[in-house]
Design a protein around this nucleic acid. Sequence first.
DNA 1: AGCACGCCGACT
DNA 2: GTCGGCGTGCTC
Length: 808
Amino acid sequence: MPLNLKGTFTYKIPEELLQEIQIGMRVLVPFGGKKIYTGIVFEIHNRQPETFTAKEIISILDEKPILPEAQLHFWNWLSTYYLQNIGEFYRFAFPSSLKLESETYLKLKPNTEINFENLDVNEMYLIQALEVRQMINVTEIEAFIPKKLIVKTINALIDLQYIEVDEKIAEKYKAKEISYLKVNQDVLRDNFLPEVLKSLDKAPKQKDLFLLILSKQQENENQPVKKSFVFEEGNFSHSQLKSLLEKNLIEEYLLQKDRLESFEGEIETLEKLTDLQFAANEEINLSFKQNINVLLHGVTASGKTHLYLEHIQECINNEKNVLFLLPEISLTKQIIQRLEKKYGKSLCFYHTKLTDFERVEVWRKVRNNEIKILIGTRNALFLPFLNLGLIIVDEEHDFSYRPREVSPYFNAKDAALVLANFYKSHVILGSATPSVESFYLAEKGKLKYVFLGKRFGGVALPTVELINFEEAQKLQQSKGQFSFKLIEKLKENLEQKKQSIILHNRRGYAHVVECESCGYVNYCSNCDVVMTYHKYSREMKCHYCGQKATKPAICPKCHSEKINERGVGIEQIEEELQKLFPESEIDRMDVDSMRKKFAYEKLYEKIESGEAEIILGTQMISKGLDFDSIELVAIPKADSLLYTQDFRAEEKAYQLITQVSGRAGRTSGEGKILIQTYNPQHQVFTLIRENDTAGIYKHFLEERKKFLYPPFVKLILIELKHRREDKADRASQFLGSVLHKYLPPECILGPEKSPIGKVRNLYQFQVLLKLPKGKNYQIYKDLILKSLAEFDEITGYHSIKKSITVDF
DNA sequence: AGCACGCCGACT
DNA sequence: GTCGGCGTGCTC
């Protein structure tokens, strides 16, 4: 069932469907009196239910299972591992038109004699309605049949073979058509041509157009002339073409085209691997032979893509298919272009920006084994692969693989490893900054660690310099947020016509707006967070619920006019930069400035053409911006990256700094990174400067071990939310006490108020569970399930929203 | 999710 | 007296 409900539902298989039905097929089932849902056959058994009578399956929607068995295993694993209902994964996995709900259409069976005498009133109504209009959906039936009787009526008529269920997709789906042009056959026949051309003498433009189409058509008989071609190639107008069409000299016709764009061009052959890449490649091959998956740790611009391509090719040579996962499809044009060039039509994309029809089409193609390579975001994991040989997870550390705010929660990197296991295929996790968890797995031998420590073509890695900002301020060598040194380097870079990147990971202008005399700060009325001041849009914004407010001119509490702005946001950095470099083109890239349509594309072009001189951005700039003339990366307030309330703060800071640094000097090898900090002796910064990758992971792992965090323990977070604070509080206390009954106290942190006590008017309390790894984990998890079941027994707590996050 | 059932307030 | 508010429970 595509619903967030516990477990599965049992239905009776009607006699006539017994032969047909298979696990993994979609079936139409009645649910809750008058609803019809598309369920998926999860299990076929003959255990008689004791507590209820099973309803009958109405019909089967597929001729062959829409889901391979491996996918069902995968769903089941996700559901038990992440403690989310399997229906949630069903909902997440399927394009909505494949899980039609009451939108299901009915139609009369063709060539059927209907004997009206045996029908009851409702059945009669429905038949009559169908005689008037060929198709009708379940929602529309509500207009003339009592809700409770709808399912019964439909069932009876299906049994009588008078009506049948129509697959909505088959009807609504239409392949996209493209217009083509051709010269009228009659014109070419009988030597009409000179006469025609003469007739066009008074319309030279039309004549040119006619000749263009003719010549293009004769150039290659097998390649039809696209309508769009005449507007792209020649400078012709629609009216000129229209005249030719009216004179019947040119004909327009339509051809079906696959909705999905696929590249038609030359196929590129792979360049030879460098020695280093070759060695890495051998390691991967060897590892795959032993059935060990690979963590490919390749510094920025080391040619990971090249290795991917190598293995994609090998996989295809072995008649198997490839799934290539990316964190976000839009930000990685380079890889896509390379793959498109090489694989053309056997390549497909799947991501959240596709329309539903496009998704269904990819589903069909994958299901029919027409696709060799599927490039997609994490929702591509759910496609019905038949013959998967390799999964590549690019930028495996990326947090887009595991968004906390999307339900159901799961980590696509880990899920990919599990899915590959069900398909008996291999995995390459690739990153310039692997997650600490993956690195640890590699250390433990669960993954093969393959390291590419040098950039492609011997290009040097950027040099890292730490600027002691405290000292600079003491010596009065600074202005605002910038030390003279940083300003100087920026200036140099600008003079050399090179581009610079500045990273500042805080949106808005000022983090807090505070009254100097009474200390009042502007809190969001829905959430327990301060509102951030956005000078550009002149408003206060809550980054949690999106609420907006005007900035107070005087303190609403004490009416003082001394309103202070504290906590430097990116807009303020932009303002300062603008003052320091009034002549330069400075562009800001953050969620707020990229909200407009094509904002990203425009900026991309601006950087590519060299128009943009300084690009200032939040963590967004760490992805996809691979341009040759970026030489300098500066992080003026690097400390702010470290001090966030998150045990992964240092890891994230390292990843962000390294990823952004990777944008510098990709071909010149003269990239410079400037990290401005009050703590130049901080281990994370010094290890980054020394480029001591092994050291930094050692540091992270030591810290995690010391404070008991992943990968040394498993984390499960239980959050309870309610509109009333006391109720959420009491519920969390109770849950805590139940958990204490079953689990050792050192495993349980809390219950306590969540770090953000209120979001969107819901008060949040939480219990954090730190569980041992290994065999005991499952035992402990079962005990947690037992505790949660006990919690659920209290009816008073049923109104509490409960969310469980495993491995966040 | 959606919908029925049921228990309390402001209406003709 | 009743209509309807939404809090609560159930769906094979």
